[in-house]
Simulated assay, not measured.
Amino acid sequence: MIGEISAIALAAILAITLHEAAHGYAALALGDDTAWRLGRVSLNPLRHVDPVGTLLLPGLLLVTQLATIGRVEAMFGWAKPVPVDFGRLHNPRWGMVLVAAAGPGINFALAFGFGMAAHVATGGAGLLPGPAMDWLLRFIALSMLYNVILACFNLLPIPPLDGGRILVGILPLPAARAVAGLERYGLLIVIGLVFVLPYLVPGFDPLRTLLREVALPVLEAVFWLSGHGGAQ
């Protein structure tokens, strides 16, 4: 139980921390040092922790699922968003696209990297005790899964998710303004889609659909690209 919790927690913390750090590094490279001045361009997970989204909600989901079904089937949470002043970027519109894309981009890169790391881990079988090797392989598998899910979820075209900001950056100005106007309601829209509507509308579960129709094929592609043939 402790091993499973530690593997889940470490995989999720790394995925979320590097996702947020990537936004900060991209913004700094493109001309905005807001996050840098606030200490948010950092690989320190504590700089990106949101008490509710990073600790309370994921912890509650983790404990509830382990206590009721003995395994973790779904996790949901968020980190403290990295502040970006898009007006300070060298090219505000395309800069917004690149800064937003940096988060999912690093998650896809991490998923591939962990896929490659699995070859090293399995090639070193015998160097670690059996339980330690089992934990390492479980951590690698969870890291691949969480990074793919985090990237795919954040690419949904709903501001303030990364996909919404990418959409704002590439749409013609009138449409971009309309989409950007949704940002103040974005978190409510996401919570409604993920938690509320599935309970109100039988058969309507956009999160499960996203996982099945988007994240799973992407994960299978990552497995194939990293030399594992396909997701099992």
Rank of each mutant, 00 (worst) to 15 (best):
Ile2Lys: 02
Ile2Met: 05
Glu4Gln: 14
Ser6Val: 15
Ser6His: 00
Ala12Lys: 03
Ile13Met: 10
Ile13Trp: 07
Ala15Trp: 03
Ile16His: 05
His19Glu: 14
His19Ile: 06
Glu20Gln: 12
Glu20Asp: 14
His23Phe: 01
Gly24Tyr: 03
Leu30Cys: 01
Thr34Tyr: 07
Thr34Asp: 07
Trp36Phe: 06
Trp36Met: 13
Leu38Ala: 09
Leu38Gly: 09
Leu46Arg: 02
His48Cys: 13
Asp50Met: 10
Pro51Tyr: 00
Val52Tyr: 07
Gly53Val: 10
Gly53Pro: 02
Leu55Gly: 03
Leu57Thr: 01
Gly59Pro: 12
Gly59Tyr: 05
Leu60Asp: 09
Leu60Lys: 03
Thr64Asp: 09
Thr64Ile: 13
Gln65Glu: 15
Thr68Lys: 00
Val72Ser: 07
Ala74His: 06
Phe76Lys: 08
Gly77Ile: 05
Ala79Cys: 03
Lys80Val: 02
Lys80Tyr: 08
Lys80Phe: 01
Pro81Met: 07
Pro81Cys: 01
Val82Thr: 13
Val82Trp: 05
Asp85Glu: 12
Phe86Val: 10
Phe86Ser: 02
Gly87Val: 06
Trp94Phe: 02
Met96His: 01
Leu98Ser: 04
Val99Gly: 06
Ala100Tyr: 01
Pro104Arg: 04
Phe108His: 14
Phe108Tyr: 14
Phe114Lys: 06
Gly115Ile: 10
Met116Asn: 11
Ala117His: 05
Ala121Arg: 04
Ala121Pro: 03
Thr122Glu: 14
Gly123Gln: 10
Gly124Cys: 01
Ala125His: 06
Ala125Val: 06
Leu127Phe: 05
Pro131Thr: 13
Ala132Gln: 11
Trp135Ala: 15
Leu136Ser: 03
Ser143Asn: 09
Val148Glu: 07
Ile149Cys: 15
Leu150Ser: 03
Cys152Asn: 12
Phe153Val: 09
Leu155Val: 03
Leu155His: 02
Leu155Ala: 04
Ile158Gly: 10
Asp162Ser: 06
Ile170Arg: 08
Ile170Ala: 06
Leu171Phe: 03
Pro172His: 04
Leu173Lys: 13
Leu173Gln: 13
Pro174Trp: 01
Ala178Glu: 15
Gly181Pro: 07
Tyr185Val: 05
Leu187Val: 14
Ile189Glu: 11
Ile189Arg: 08
Val190Asn: 03
Phe195Ser: 08
Phe195Asn: 01
Leu200Cys: 00
Leu200Pro: 01
Val201Ala: 05
Phe204Gln: 12
Phe204Arg: 10
Arg208Leu: 14
Glu213Phe: 02
Pro217Phe: 01
Leu219Thr: 08
Gly227Leu: 11
His228Ile: 07
Gly230Ala: 15
Gly230Gln: 14
